[in-house]
Structures are given as structure tokens and as C-alpha cells.
């Protein structure tokens, strides 16, 4: 286990990038997932069909395949996902702005894949909102969009927060694939480097390196899990 102490800066930097990747992908997944959920419950049949197809596709293919489609497919289409070079945001998350596109590609792949699960968690939340709530909203003259925004989604979020948390935890762990799909600098790619190339001619054995990597993930996922337990307990106390 000496590798963790000897190469601590390597793991620290890797952790920081994995954290950034997870954070941005979580935001992306929540945004796309909410949109898809709205499509799936839309009164317009083609939109509903679109939402359902999205979920059926991304929920049912391996994440590795999604990564391949994004990492290999986007450049074939002539895109290096420059729309993610968001001014301001690229000052905080500097990897967003650089020319090597794999950080942006990883965010896209993780967001698209996870959005399907976010959509389903949200939809179960929406189904948990009694139909009378939406009916009352309609009867005071709220439009479909206002109804979702002011009445149904705020309550659906509450009901969905624990399943959503589980989805995000799974996504954080899934982010480890990015390091094998072209991204350099996250926990798994840095760990891999210690094993294969080593530092100053010294290579490290696989198992201790991956234990150290796992510890990095636990630092993110365990607190998130505890937070979810707490939210759930609070909700049970309020019993509303």
C-alpha cells in the first residue's frame, strides 16, 4: 500500500479530475434526464415516442458502447464538442477549455447514458405525485408547462431524490471508464499509468493501485450515500 503515500500527488490530482468529471456529468445528466422525462409524459405523441426511444436505447446498451460512439463518432461527424467550452465555467473547470476533447467527450457520454436512468427515477417521482395535484393545477388555469414547473416537478423531485442519488452514485463509479477511453488525468488513467509506465522507472502492482483508486471513489460516494440516508430520514419524520 506504499503506493498511496509515495505517489499521493498523482492520486490527489486524479481524484480532483474525477470529481470534476462527476460533478459536471451529474449536472448534464440531470438536465438531459429532466428533459427526457418531460418528453415521456408530454401530451404530444411524437415527443412521447422520442423520450421513450431515448430511454430504451441508452438504458439498454453498455456504457462502454456509449463512450465509443461519442469518442469515435463525434470526431467522425467533425465535432470536438466545443459547445461545452462554456465561458466562465471553463475558468473553474480548466479541462473544459483545452483542445484535447476527451474531457468534454467523457462528460457527454456519461451524461447521455445516465440521463436515461435520471429520467426513469424522475418519472417514478412524477407517478408518486397524486393525480389530484395536477388536476387542481389545471382547474385554476395553469398550462401544461406551468403545471409541471410549479406543481408536479417540485413534488416529483422530492419523491425522486433518493433514487436519483443512487443513479448519481452509480454514475460516479461509471466515470472510471473514462480513463480507459482516452481521458488523461482522472483516477483510473493515472492509476493505470503507475502500473504500466510507472514513475522514474518504478512501476507499481495492480492491486494496491486499484485499492487506492477505490478509496478515491469512496471519498465521493460514501458521503453522498450518507446524505441520502439523512434526507430520507428527514422526510419520514415530516411524513408529508
Amino acid at each position: 500500500m506504499n503506493v498511496l503515500w509515495e505517489q499521493f500527488p498523482v492520486f490527489r490530482d486524479g481524484f480532483l479530475l474525477t470529481f470534476q468529471l462527476s460533478f459536471l456529468s451529474a449536472i448534464g445528466a440531470l438536465l438531459v434526464g429532466t428533459l427526457v422525462a418531460v418528453l415521456r409524459i408530454s401530451p404530444v405523441p411524437p415527443l412521447r415516442w422520442l423520450g421513450t426511444s431515448y430511454v430504451n436505447l441508452f438504458r439498454n446498451i453498455p456504457l462502454t458502447a456509449v463512450f465509443v460512439f461519442v469518442v469515435v463518432g463525434l470526431p467522425l461527424l467533425g465535432s470536438s464538442a466545443d459547445f461545452l467550452k462554456i465561458p466562465g465555467l471553463d475558468q473553474i473547470f480548466t479541462r473544459l477549455g483545452i483542445d484535447l476533447p476527451y474531457f468534454r467527450f467523457s462528460i457527454i457520454a456519461l451524461s447521455l447514458y445516465t440521463a436515461a436512468f435520471v429520467c426513469e427515477a424522475l418519472r417514478s417521482g412524477i407517478n408518486a405525485v397524486p393525480s389530484g395535484q395536477a388536476e387542481a393545477a389545471r382547474s385554476i388555469g395553469l398550462t401544461f408547462t406551468q403545471n409541471l414547473r410549479f406543481i408536479v416537478l417540485p413534488q416529483a423531485w422530492r419523491a425522486a431524490i433518493v433514487p436519483l442519488g443512487s443513479v448519481i452514485i452509480a454514475m460516479i463509479k461509471n466515470s472510471a471508464i473514462a480513463g480507459f477511453m482516452g481521458l488523461y488525468g482522472d483516477l483510473s488513467s493515472r492509476g493505470q499509468e503507475l502500473v504500466s509506465a510507472g514513475v522514474n522507472g518504478v512501476t507499481y502492482p495492480l492491486i494496491p493501485v486499484f485499492i487506492a483508486i477505490s478509496l478515491g471513489f469512496l471519498i465521493m460516494t460514501v458521503p453522498l450515500g450518507l446524505l441520502l440516508d439523512r434526507i430520507e430520514k428527514n422526510r419520514m419524520v415530516k411524513a408529508r
Binding site: 395535484q133 382547474s139 388555469g141 395553469l142 406543481i151
Partner: peptide, 29 residues
């Protein structure tokens, strides 16, 4: 939606918006 705004409806199961206070329930519309 405009027509419904002109027709008040009171339900058997009240259907107050559960995540809003009573005042917010009344002022939302």
C-alpha cells in the same frame, strides 16, 4: 386554461398543493 381560470373547482379530496403553504396555494393562480 383561460376558461378553467374562470371556473372555480373544489374537489372531494381538497387537492391542495402539498409542497406549498396555504397562502402560496391561494396566491399561485
Amino acid at each position: 386554461a383561460r376558461l378553467r381560470a374562470d371556473v372555480g373547482m373544489v374537489f372531494q379530496s381538497f387537492n391542495l398543493f402539498a409542497h406549498l403553504t396555504i397562502l402560496q396555494n391561494v396566491t399561485l393562480g
